[in-house]
Every structure is written in C-alpha cells, then in structure tokens.
Design a binder for these strands. Structure first.
Length: 900
RNA sequence: GGGCCGUUAACUCAGUGGCUAGAGUGCCACCUUCACACGGUGGAAGUCACAGGUUCAAGUCCUGUACGGCCCA
C-alpha cells in the first residue's frame, strides 16, 4: 500500500462494483425486512451538479447507506425533471445559435422532437455526476417527469381534480413573462428593489377647469386606465368623486371613485386605476366594476388599444407618452424613489401583469390536510423553524395558475367541442369523436402545457407506479426522508403533501403524507458569503473538487462544515479538511493491516479481542461510545455531529493514542517466543487493532464510502466475517459490555501525565532521541495504583527510559516538573538548563488554578448558590475545589523545588 | 411593512443555563522517531456585536439596538 490515498485509483472501479452487486436495488416483493424510502428531488434534466446538489445528495446517500447497513430495504429513487421553461429555453437558444429554423418556424411537433433529441444527447449529465459523488441510488427505478407512466399519472391526477371541480379556467390577472411569452405562477417571481422615477401626471376633470394629479412609475399604462381612485376621507378630493376624467391622448371618459385602499400619503393621494395591468388595480376595478383594457401584445409591445403608440416596446411608449404629456403641459413632476419590481425567475425580465385566460387549481381545500400534517405530527421539518414558513404559505395560499404557454411539458388533457365546451380525459380524445357530455364532435385539444410542478408534485408516488396498485407502491410508500432546498418549500414540498392527501384516497389518511421528515439543507455560499451562482461565476464545481480531492473528501468536508441547515461559507481549500482525514484513515488502516499478522497467529487477529490490557479496554470502550454517538446522530439526521464524533475518535483516540500505545506490545512481541507473555500480549493488541479498524470502517462507510470500501478489500477474509462488500455489511451494534467509565477515567489520567511529560520535555528542550529516566509523584492511592500498573506504557508514550512511580511526596532535585490531575511528573535537568522557562510555565498554570479556585469560592461562598443550585452541581463544585487545591499545593511545592 | 437566520480566536465554525469557552485552518518553536510531513509534539491567540433584564449562575433564556444575510408582502 502506498503512503497516500489516491481516490482516482479506486472510485470509478468501486462504483461499478457497487452497481454489479445489486445492493442498490431493493426487491419489490416482501423480503421480511423493513423498508426505508428516499425520493431524490429531481434535478432539471438540463442541470449540471452544483455544490447545493452535492450537499443535498450526500446527505441522502448517508441516510440510505446507514439504513441499508442497518437491515432496511433502503430505496433511493433518482430522476430528473423536464423543467418546462428552462429546457425549452435551452433548446431555443441552441436553435438560434445554429441559425436554422426557430421554434415557430419548426412547429410544435418538430420542436418537441428536437427537445427529446437534445435530451438524448445532453440531458441527465447530472445523474452521471451523482455517481461520481458515490450516490447509491437505485438506477433501475430512475424516473423522468415526462416518462409515459408519469404522463399517465399526471392525467389521472388532472382528471380526478377536474371531476372534483378543483380545476377551473378563467380570465385572471396573471404574471406574464414577455420574453418567454407565458404565464408564470406567483411563486416563480422575485422582487428586486430598484430606483425608479415617480412621475406626476395631470388628468383634466370633465366639464371642469380643474385637474386631478396622479403619480405613477409606469406612465405608459395610462392607456389602459379605466378609473382614478382617491381615499373616501381625503378632503382634498371628496368633491371629485362621482365625476369623471377625460383621459388625455385617448379622450376616453373614466370615473373618479373612492376606495379605502388608496394611501393618501403616497404621491398626490390620487391614483390611476389600470385593472388590466396591476394586481392592486385589478382588485379595485373588480370592486367598482371598472372595465379591463389590455394594452399589450404577448411580447410586451403596445397593442391596438394604444392608437398611435401601437407596436412600440414599453420603454419607447413610455418616452413618447411622457413627451406628449409634457407638450400638453400635463407632466407636472418627476421624483426619484426606490420601489420593488417583479422579475421572472426564469427569464430575469420584468413581469408584466396582464389579464389572460388560464387554468387554475383551487388551493384552499387542498391546503387543509397539508396544514393538518404538521399539526398532527405526521410531517416534521428539520430544522423545525421551516414549519412556520410552510404553514404561512399554506394558510395564505392563492389559486395556482397551472397553464403555461409552452410546448415542452405535459399538455393539458382537455378537449373542446365546436361550442368550446371543455372536457378532461385520461385517454386522448380523437378529433371528430363525440364529446362525452355534449355528444358534439371534438375539434381540438387545449394548446397549453402544465406548470412543471404539475408533474413533480406527484413525484413521491408516481415514481412508485401510482395510479396502478403496484408492489412498489405498497412496499415503499409513504417515504421517510426528503431533503431539499428552502426555496422550493412552497413550489414543491407543500404541493407534494397536498397531492398525497388529495389523490391517495385508497390509503388510510395516516399513510397519505408523502414523507415523515423534510430536511431543509444549508445554502452553500462562496468564501465571501455570497450565494453561489452561475451568473456570478463564483461557484465551485463539485466534479472538479472530486477530481482534485476525492469524492469522500468532498462528502466528508460538506458534512462536517454544515450544521443543521446553517448556511456555510465554502472556499475551495475547505476540502483539504476531508482530504487530510481520508489520508489519515488510509494510513492508520495501512498500519493496522501491516501489523495484523504475528509470528504465532498467521491468520491475523480474527479472534475476539481479549482486552486484558488497559489500553485495549479503553479503545473498546471508546469504540462503543462512538458507535452509539454516530448511530444516534444519524437516527436524528444530525450529520455534522456524526462526522465530528468520527473525526475525534479516529484521529484522537485511535491514531494518536491507541495505535501509539499498541506499538509497544507489537514491537515487544516481534521476536518473542511463541506462547510467551510478550507474544500473547502482541496477539491481543493485533486482535484489538483488527476489531477496531473493521468496526470503524463500517461506521465511516456512509461518509467515506469509496475509501472505506477500498480498505475493506484489503482486510483479511477472516476479519471481514464473510462480507465481501462493505456496502452490504451490517451496521455495528453498540457493545454495551465494553463501555467502562472507570477504565476511561484511568486512561485519561495516564494521558494527562504523558502530556505533562511532553510539556516538560519541550520546555527542557530534551531531544526526541533522548530517553531520560523519569518520576511520577502520585498524590493519592488510586493514582499510584493506576500508574504502578501502567508505568511501562507511560514511559513508552512519553519516550522515557523508565518511570519511577512514587507516592512518598519527596521531589527529586534538579528536575523539571509539571502537574497532572492526581500528581506531578519529573524529568531530570540537563546541566546547562535554564529553569526560567519552566518557572514561567508553572507560574502561568498557577494563575489559572488560582483563578479557578477564586471562581469556585465565589460560588460556594454565596448562600443563595448553595441553597438554590442543583445539589449535584454544588457537590461537584466542592469536589473540584479539592482537586484544584491539591493541584495548587503541588504547583507551589514544585515551583519551590525549582530554585533548589 | 411583516417574518426568519446569523454576529464566539486572524479565518471557517462547534458550544444541554453550571468545570478555567473549544475544534479545524493559519501563526510560532521543535521533530524526517519503523502508518501518515495531507504527519507528530508543545505553544501563542477570545471584552462570546452592543445595551438592559431574568437567574444563585448567561456565550447559552427574555427585551431592545446595530451590522450582515435570506424570505414574504
């Protein structure tokens, strides 16, 4: 084995072995094992892996691997989303750069064909990248939201909701994306604060010489004004209410109305009302029965309602209208303000609210059971605070605009007869066939497609075969764990819960909720705390990082850096943490594997550890503790805590202390006679090393699957217990009998003394090669028993010739000294040693101990503390004071001894 | 306007109301000792953002302020 772990030599080969093993594909038939299901949030089919995906999928893989090893039939279903707008835009752009016919020239059928072709060649890149990450999904169950069975599920869902009259068509004010020329839902727009000009326009009052001034940031929409509103209690304008305005440039007569929604403080206190192009005005217009005038073509240019401005883009229309008002003397003000404009998430262009015929889903009723799911505990968010975000949205939910004027997606399964009477159908209705209700011939299918969430909200069960009564559906639904990003709590998470309750009528209510836990993962920021994004160019490419540091290093680093959904600032060099850890694991395994075979036990340390030696008992106790800690943390999805516990155990306990301690007996046993004390002791050390390593590899496997699997292959067969592939090994059970707090306490005391020796060595500048004879002075009987039994271990770890254990209180002269809990250590001076460094070291420690005693005295001297605090706390303070007092006395005595 | 998150060592972050506030990186010194220099040993480094409050006891709980970030309207 080389001295460094080189991930590239193993990863792809090991992944192929996992795929061949079939372990990622749990059976649809009952195996007697419990199931555990995770649905991967389907990334866009156009997508490439970014850090958010890497983080999210690492967590899912961790859970799946842990559950698989724990005896579950663990199913992780991967897949991709057709992502209507995003994908159509990618292919349109491709057509544009190729200079061939564009979408409209090609026609619907040919264009959709083109997208399928694109998908064939360029789609699903992200799924291949997930394999690089080590994702152990069941690829045999991979789904795409446009697969035929998914399409069937979408239609069944649509028709069912149609029959329940939860789907309706109507002309409503929708968010219009002028670039993509489609409606988008409320949840697909974002607000950007910007500086704008607020212009004041004068509108002449009809049959009067008076004017009413209105303020607006969008003067061009005046062409669609059908009213002017003032607050009913606004004294300035009261007498105008009921009169009308002669709208300049159009000479249309529009009423002046009173409405409490008008803020008298804003602008002039009078507002123009444009019901066709503003959500607030739409409401006002509805209240006062104002006309709705649409002034825009679908591409955002002015339409035939605009007279001489027809055909102009909005910005130009604005300029010309302002110029016209100026000319008429009707432009009376312009001031700079900051306001919010709505931007389309997809095209990043300004949203134009306009009235349009669209399909909607009534959400109020659907939301109720989804609200109930968190109230009755069926659904839990982690971190819990997202529950509120989820509930706030559901409790104020608006109807969902589900139609999109696109070609790529699930076409709305609605057909019309010649009288435009619609009917929804699971099966295609042929043109000319009779309308099921009216009997008149069908003339056309609806042109629109469904919002992309109209298929992904069925993801947790449509992937399992719903609406068929499939074996998968019976075994693997509901799922246990969903991990996703916070920005799709409304778009996706809430809708999946609604869909589960609304559509799975066959299941008892308690089994409809699609996932028990919804984990909202951290947002990955760059090193400066900015969101990683393609446009900002500040993203770190996970695949590049995998190639540079290894998949396990990427996985492990991400896990230990993100604590329960807390955002993480990630600079590239953070992955060195995982890389170092992986290399450490590699090397400790290398050491163990090279030392498993002794002269008298050639099969290696396959027998159970005898655990006679203190250090053996100690590491087995620590191993039991870390097994419990990791299992508990993973049960609660506390990935950071599990990663942290593994780091501490591996590096501190196993590498720094146990392996170093075991070397003593391994070396001593090298040339010992068979059956001798030394040989038996070495064999015991080997057994303990072997057992600890194999257990550790299992615990590490969910975090560092490639490395642990690569090392598992090097473990001698008898130690592997017949398990060829670590991925399929059983998760370690907590060895309760090995947990021994007394042993841990005794070993901790030895560690403390060894550190004290090392400290004095450093202060005395004792060369590493020099092995002085040293002394431990024990302050009490248990300490002296402990050290008497372990003097050779302490000597070995502190690189000493010998350790004399004394408890007579007599300090050796001309020795450097330090204290540990329970006594002090002494190392002989070299002749030319200056004790000043030792003195200042001891004095520093003295100050700390004195400070500690003062703090405790402060507490114990406080009658209220003694009276009110938990008696256990008071008791432990008293005990601590005794310890510190002893330490203080030792320090003072040792300081005094230095001058002799 | 409403809500949420954060502010702890130079950096990135942990931290059940109760030991003298920790880790990794970086820094300083020493060490190529037969797993690992992607290593070992030792060390320096903190007014826990600020102001009040609750409590015997606050980094931790409450109120407010400032700053940074996110979401909703």
């Amino acid at each position: 084995m080389p001295t460094r772990y080189t991930p590239a030599d193993f990863e792809q080969r090991i992944y192929a072995e996992w795929e061949r093993s079939g372990l990622m594909t749990p059976p649809a038939q009952d195996s007697g094992r419990p199931t555990f299901t995770v649905m991967m949030p389907p990334p866009n089919v156009t997508g490439v892996l970014h850090m958010g995906h890497a983080l999210n999928n690492t967590m899912q893989d961790l859970v799946i691997r842990y559950k698989r090893m724990s005896g579950f039939d663990a199913l992780w279903v991967p897949g991709t989303d057709h992502a209507g707008i995003a994908t159509q835009a990618v292919v349109e752009k491709k057509l544009l750069t190729e200079g061939g016919p564009n979408r409209k020239e090609m026609g619907r059928e040919a264009f959709v064909e083109e997208i399928w072709k694109w998908r064939q060649h360029h789609g699903d890149v992200i799924l291949k990248q997930l394999k690089r990450l080590g994702a152990s999904c069941d690829w045999s169950r991979t789904k795409f939201t446009l697969d035929a069975d998914m399409a069937h599920a979408v239609r069944v869902a649509f028709v069912r909701l149609w029959k329940q009259e939860k789907i309706y068509r109507g002309a409503r004010l929708v968010n219009w994306d002028c670039k993509l020329q489609t409606a988008v839902s409320d949840d697909e727009i974002e607000y950007v604060t910007q500086k704008s000009t607020l212009w004041t326009l004068r509108y002449p009052v009809k049959d009067s010489t008076e004017f009413l001034s209105v303020a607006t940031t969008r003067p061009e929409t005046m062409l669609g004004d059908t009213g002017v509103a003032v607050h009913p209690e606004d004294k300035r304008y009261g007498h105008f209410v009921g009169q009308s305005i002669l709208l300049p440039l159009t000479n249309r007569e529009i009423p002046i109305i009173a409405d409490t929604s008008v803020d008298p403080e804003f602008g002039t206190g009078a507002v123009k009302v444009t019901p066709g192009h503003d959500p607030a005005d739409y409401e006002r217009g509805a209240r006062h029965h104002l006309a709705i005038i649409n002034i825009l073509h679908t591409d955002g240019t002015m339409n035939g309602e605009c007279g001489r401005f027809e055909g102009l883009p909005r910005e130009q229309a604005r300029k010309q209208i302002l110029a016209a008002f100026e000319e008429l003397g009707l432009l009376v003000g312009a001031e700079e303000i900051t306001n919010n404009v709505s931007i389309s998430d997809r095209s990043k262009t300004a949203i134009e609210p306009l009235v349009s015929e669209q399909w909607f889903v009534k959400m109020k009723d659907l939301a109720q059971p989804a609200i109930g799911a968190v109230k009755d505990g069926s659904l839990k968010f982690k971190p819990e605070r997202w529950t509120k975000v989820y509930l706030d949205w559901l409790e104020n939910v608006h109807d969902w605009c589900i139609s999109r004027q696109l070609w790529w997606g699930h076409r709305i399964p609605v057909w019309y007869d010649e009288d435009h009477v619609p009917v929804a159908s699971v099966e295609d209705l042929a043109i000319g066939s009779p309308h099921p209700q009216t009997g008149k011939p069908i003339v056309r299918q609806d042109e629109d497609v469904l919002d992309t969430w109209g298929s992904s909200w069925l993801w947790p069960f449509a992937t399992l075969g719903w609406p068929e009564h499939s074996a998968d559906m019976a075994r693997f639904y509901p799922t246990q764990f969903l991990s996703t990003a916070r920005d799709i709590i409304y778009l996706w998470v809430a809708r999946m819960v609604m869909a589960g309750y609304a559509l799975l009528e066959d299941l008892p209510a308690a089994q409809r909720n699609p996932f028990a836990t919804c984990y909202i993962h951290a947002t990955v920021l760059d090193g400066h705390g900015r969101r990683m994004s393609k446009s900002a160019g500040n993203g770190i490419d996970p695949v590049e990082m995998i190639e540079k540091y290894g998949a396990d290093a990427v996985r492990y680093s991400l896990m230990i850096l993100t604590r329960e959904g807390q955002d993480v600032k990630l600079a590239e060099n953070r992955f060195e943490l995982g890389q170092r850890f992986c290399n450490k694991i590699w090397n400790v395994a290398r050491f163990v594997l090279q030392n498993l075979q002794g002269p008298s036990d050639p099969v290696g340390a396959a027998q159970a550890p005898a655990a006679d030696a203190l250090e053996d008992q100690w590491i087995l106790s620590r191993l039991a503790a870390v097994t419990e800690a990791v299992s508990t943390a993973l049960d609660q999805y506390d990935f950071h805590d599990a990663a942290q516990a593994l780091y501490r155990f591996t590096w501190d306990d196993f590498c720094d202390w146990y392996v170093e301690a075991a070397k003593r007996r391994l070396w001593a046993g090298e040339n010992a006679a068979e059956g001798s004390v030394e040989a038996v002791s070495a064999a015991a050390a080997r057994a303990t090393l072997g057992h600890t390593l194999t257990t550790l590899l299992k615990l590490l496997h969910p975090f560092t699957p490639f490395l642990s699997e690569a090392l598992w292959a090097e473990v001698p067969q008898p130690l592997r217990g017949g398990v060829d592939m670590l991925m399929g090994a059983s998760w370690p059970t907590v060895d309760v009998a090995s947990r021994n707090l007394e042993v841990e306490e005794n070993f901790a005391q030895l560690q403390d003394a060894v550190r004290a020796f090392r400290n004095v060595r450093a202060l005395l500048e004792t060369p590493a090669t020099e092995k002085p004879a040293a002394t431990v002075l024990c302050g009490d009987a248990p300490t002296s028993v402990n050290f008497a039994a372990q003097q050779s271990l302490v000597a070995f770890l502190a690189r000493l010739e010998s350790v004399e254990v004394r408890s007579d209180g007599i300090k050796p002269a001309a020795h450097g000294t330090d204290v540990f809990r329970g006594g002090s250590v002494f190392l002989p001076f070299a002749l030319d040693t200056d004790p000043a460094k030792l003195r200042s070291s001891l004095e520093k420690k003295l100050q700390k101990v004195e400070g500690g005693i003062r703090a405790i005295d402060g507490k114990l001297g406080n009658a209220k503390f003694v009276a009110n605090a938990d008696p256990e706390v008071v008791q432990s303070e008293r005990e601590r004071r005794v310890l510190l007092e002893t330490e203080l006395a030792t320090l003072l005595a040792n300081l005094e001894g230095l001058t002799v």
